[in-house]
Computed example of a mutant assay.
Amino acid sequence: MAEAEEPGLSDQYPTASPWPLFVALGLTLSEIGVFIGLFPVAVFGLILFGGSVAGILTESGYAERPWPTLLGVGAVLTVLAAALALWQIPLADIALSNVGEGPLLTRLVAVAVAGLVMAAMGSVASLLEQTAA
């Protein structure tokens, strides 16, 4: 008896990848968190999005390990948040004591924190992987 074929699945990938769901969920949570101004939701959503992008690139074979991609996504987010802060906010208002007062600064800090966490996770995981090998 012939095996029943499942549409959309190949012999190389017998099951569907979970990463697209996490990419969509991370992007949605980060959008909600950034636009509404919910700091923890924005940070979690961006970390989930960046981690899912690293996972999907690793699974598809574009990257050997997810850690450099996670480091790169984190660095890009941090640099973009810093550049937007310097461009849009007067230098006198850029201080950690002003984070809860201005909506733009608070949102950019959330993006920068998520980027720094991803960069730290990617760096530490790469170092641990190198020392274990």
Rank of each mutant, 00 (worst) to 15 (best):
A85L: 04
T15W: 06
F35V: 12
V117A: 11
A2C: 01
Q130M: 10
A16D: 03
Q12G: 03
Y62R: 04
T69W: 11
L96N: 11
A82H: 10
P68H: 05
A92Q: 15
A81H: 09
T58Y: 02
T15H: 09
G37I: 08
L80W: 03
I94L: 07
F22W: 13
S60I: 01
Y62G: 01
S97T: 15
G50W: 07
G74T: 10
G115W: 13
V41D: 07
G45W: 13
Y62K: 00
L96M: 12
G26L: 02
P90T: 10
F22S: 02
A85W: 10
L70N: 05
T78I: 04
G115L: 12
V99Y: 01
V34P: 01
L86P: 04
L91M: 13
A95F: 04
G74I: 06
E5K: 14
A63G: 08
E64K: 01
M121L: 15
A92R: 15
P14T: 02
L104Y: 08
F22Y: 08
E101D: 10
A16G: 06
P66L: 03
F22V: 00
P20A: 14
A85F: 06
E59L: 00
P40L: 02
L116T: 12
Q130G: 03
L38I: 15
L57Y: 00
S17K: 01
M118I: 01
A132M: 05
M121E: 11
E3H: 06
E31H: 08
Q12T: 12
L57C: 03
A95L: 07
V53L: 15
A63Q: 07
L29A: 14
P20K: 15
T58C: 03
V117F: 13
V111G: 09
S126G: 13
A110M: 06
T106N: 08
V23A: 08
V34N: 11
N98H: 08
F44K: 13
I56A: 09
A24R: 05
Q12Y: 05
S60T: 09
S30V: 05
L21T: 14
L77A: 12
L91C: 02
F35I: 09
A125P: 02
T58M: 13
W67N: 04
E5Y: 03
R107H: 04
A42H: 04
L86H: 13
G26I: 01
V111A: 15
A120H: 13
L70P: 06
A82W: 09
A24K: 04
V76K: 03
D11Y: 07
P66K: 09
V73H: 05
L21Q: 11
A133D: 15
V23T: 08
A112H: 12
A110K: 04
A114C: 08
V41H: 11
W19T: 06
